[in-house]
């Protein structure tokens, strides 16, 4: 097994009744890679991601995440990944510090470690003045950055991001991507699911799912060349419209 491949997926399939949500997808993600997992609503990307993060059992196929098998070691996977979705991020009625302490706690960090982590995190994000303020009172962009940092609090090998930057202003969004670059630089693999094609442009490689299958997988640059278009949005349109 290649230790550089932190996610290995082979012929992974999920069937609900007579509906095949995920149809024998195969791909690898390397350590430190920013991998975009794209598809329209209902294309099967959420189902596929649920299998990878160990909360849904595949019907057939093989997959290992962070070296653990999704069939047999789902609990180990959960300990080694971070997860951030746009819908659920942080508790609005807890302060910045309380949120950090809480999430550190559920990943079993020692009190000392949480304190260290909290101090680093607050400093890095420039949140010193609002550390004791309720998260609900912070601007959306700050919340998202904090939420991302919190998802890394237990030093996971892989972090899964679900539509991380939708609706954020362009500057904050770039700050967010800088955080992702940094994580990737430190060797954390970043797995981004999204249907916003401009988020795809920032990824090292992207896969595009259509009707349960991966129809394209390459760097954004090569995909754009292949389809002879200027943006990932157009790549997607060409693929989805057949």
């Amino acid at each position: 097994m290649n230790t550089n491949k932190v996610i290995q997926v082979k012929e992974l399939t999920k069937v609900f009744g007579d509906f095949t949500a995920v149809n024998a997808i195969t791909f690898d993600v390397e350590k430190g890679e920013i991998f975009g997992f794209l598809g329209a609503n209902g294309a099967g990307k959420t189902t596929a991601m649920k299998m990878l993060i160990g909360i849904s059992n595949p019907t057939s196929g093989k997959a290992t995440v962070a070296g653990f098998d999704v069939f047999t070691n789902a609990e180990d996977i959960k300990k080694n990944i971070g997860y951030m979705s746009q819908k659920f991020a942080l508790y609005d009625d807890l302060t910045v510090k309380e949120n950090i302490t809480f999430f550190g706690g559920i990943y079993g960090l020692s009190r000392k470690r949480i304190k260290e982590k909290a101090a680093i995190l607050i400093k890095e994000l420039g949140l010193e003045n609002v550390a004791n303020k309720l998260v609900g009172s912070l601007p959306l962009g700050w919340k998202q950055k904090l939420s991302f940092s919190v998802s890394l609090i237990h030093d996971p090998k892989i972090v899964f991001l679900d539509e991380p930057t939708g609706g954020v202003d362009p500057i904050t969004r770039r700050q967010f991507w800088e955080l992702i670059y940094k994580a990737s630089h430190q060797g954390i693999t970043v797995f981004v699911t999204t249907h916003y094609m401009d988020e795809a442009e920032y990824c090292d490689r992207v896969s595009i799912m259509v009707n349960g299958k991966i129809e394209a997988l390459d760097t954004p640059k090569k995909l754009k060349e292949q389809f002879k278009v200027d943006t990932m949005n157009d790549v997607f349109l060409k693929l989805a419209r057949g």
Binding site: A40, N41, L237, A240, R241
Partner: peptide
Amino acid sequence: TTGVDPVSRK
């Protein structure tokens, strides 16, 4: 167009 896929957006 928020929350809608690129094809529908177009």
